[in-house]
């Protein structure tokens, strides 16, 4: 009569091992490495987003701090963008894009808009077409780091205009639209920056268009 009870005592080792194995598998399944990795990537992308915001904010700051050197605003902005790109390169990041400024001087007649286009795409722009009101200007073969300067003159009477910038490279075509508020009594500078910051971890993109009274 005692035999079955004694036999079951021996099997307790097997039962215990099954329980322990089940617990180990459950623990391992609960430890979701891919989710942890995803969280880490999210944090890293967050840091790069802050670095991108840093470049964006300081680019606009360049215009503000150049207030006492109005004629140098565009050059200062372009210098800053080249600098930011150089710093990004030292950190294994690619800062690419285009930087466009449109300066309207209220004291000149006929009304004139001076447009400066900086190519930071990392490749040659084969074709650039800038359209403002009814006028347009076409430039070709703008190398990386190259600058195109265009003047539009006319009897501009509307309160605001949209400048169309179409450019193509060997890789892609793109069109950016730049909103230019117009007021004949106030000189202004309008900035359009279409940027991307790429690293092996993430990519940040933003187009911003802002106008300053000068």
């Amino acid at each position: 009569m005692m035999l079955p009870k004694e036999k079951s005592k021996g099997q307790v080792f097997i039962i215990l091992s099954i329980i322990i194995i089940t617990v180990m598998i459950m623990l391992k399944t609960g430890l979701n490495i891919s989710q942890i990795m995803e969280n880490k990537r999210y944090l890293e992308a967050g840091l790069e987003q802050m670095q991108f915001q840093n470049i964006r904010n300081e680019a606009l700051k360049t215009i503000q701090i150049s207030y006492y050197n109005k004629s140098g605003m565009t050059d200062n902005l372009n210098s800053f963008m080249n600098y930011a790109r150089q710093v990004a390169n030292t950190k294994a990041m690619d800062l690419n894009g285009v930087v466009v400024t449109a300066v309207y001087n209220s004291s000149t007649t006929p009304y004139a808009i001076n447009v400066t286009f900086l190519n930071l795409l990392g490749t040659t722009i084969n074709h650039l077409n800038i359209t403002f009101d009814t006028s347009s200007n076409i430039s070709t073969s703008i190398s990386d780091g190259g600058i195109v300067k265009v003047n539009f003159t006319g009897d501009y009477s509307s309160m605001g205009y949209t400048m169309k910038l179409f450019f193509n490279t060997s890789y892609a075509n793109k069109t950016d639209y730049m909103t230019i508020p117009f007021n004949t009594s106030k000189s202004k500078i309008t900035v359009l920056i279409d940027l991307s910051l790429k690293s092996y971890r993430s990519e940040q993109n933003e187009i911003f268009n802002q106008t300053f009274i000068i």
Partner: peptide, 26 residues
């Protein structure tokens, strides 16, 4: 039976946990 239990645990442990997975550095 005890040997079978230990061996089966060891087998599962080695097969299931042998793949080296380091936790990411936060």
């Amino acid at each position: 039976e005890a040997t079978v239990a230990v061996l089966s645990m060891l087998t599962v442990f080695i097969i299931y946990f042998s793949a080296k997975q380091t936790l990411p550095d936060f």
